[in-house]
Amino acid sequence: MATSDKLIDTDRWYRINQSIGEFLTSKYTVVAILSTMVLYFTFPIYWTFISSLKTLDGIHAFPPSLVPDASELVDPIWLNYVHLLTQRSFDMFTFNSLIVALVTTAIVVTFGTLAGYGFSRFRFPYDDYVFIGILGARLLPPIGMLVPFYRLFGQLNLIDTRIALVVVYTYMNLPLAIWLMRNYFISIPADLDEASYIDGATRFQTFKDVILPLAKPGVAAVAILTFLFSWREFLFAFALTFTTSAKTIPVGAMMMIEDVVVLWNYLAAGGFIAMLPALLFVVLFQRYIVSGLTAGAVKG
């Protein structure tokens, strides 16, 4: 008797559990959770964009309307952006941001690819220790290096130059690039190198003709991540630049908070300029970013 009671009991438990499970994994629950998540994560972006189109009166209206009507918006609609580009030096900031990010990306991709290939294919004394050093270097907190970099650039007369930013961003991104590229090269069978050597190619030809073309997705991931990380960097850009000759967009956006009266619509527009390329990259290159982030964090 007792045992059969217990059986029925477990059976009921099972069914209760099962129905909670079914509820939690049902289409509607999943969609509800995901919609809330998406709303939470994207609303600030939407709000930045909407606010960047508003007049100051529109900004100050309380409560603000989620979908603004025409009276709250500037006319023409891109007026705030024009103001930033023509009156607030955002043309220079954008130029600086682009140059710094592109040059950094070129350097990091080149060196990262070379070193990644080296680490994936060759052995040398203490190579494991060098590699662990690189792994560690990429995790050093940049803020910890701010003081020495700041002084070094001061002594080299590189404060307030784009060169200083390129140097710092290379330091910040090269270890990750080496790490990612090495892992990517390891995923390419060494048989292909050997086949190429036997076919008569030199080591350089093998690298250039056979391995590098196959590593394109890895190179793409490194390039995209490096560009994004350089584009969005704020701390060093803020500390090392003073004038429009080197300030980048994130710095330009931050500067507006220091005005006596904060013009939130301009600030939103500046913020949106800062995030726009990054948003586009995520939409266009999601695959590379996701693989780069996960491989960079976890995969050996």
Binding site: P44, W47, P64, R232, A253, A274, A278, V282
Partner: peptide, 26 residues
Amino acid sequence: VLILLAWAVPLVVTGLIWRFMLHSDY
């Protein structure tokens, strides 16, 4: 992608835009 968009926002902009969204007046 939709969730990753938030990751793409530069951190300083994240701070600034939330400062606006959490503003006590508007």
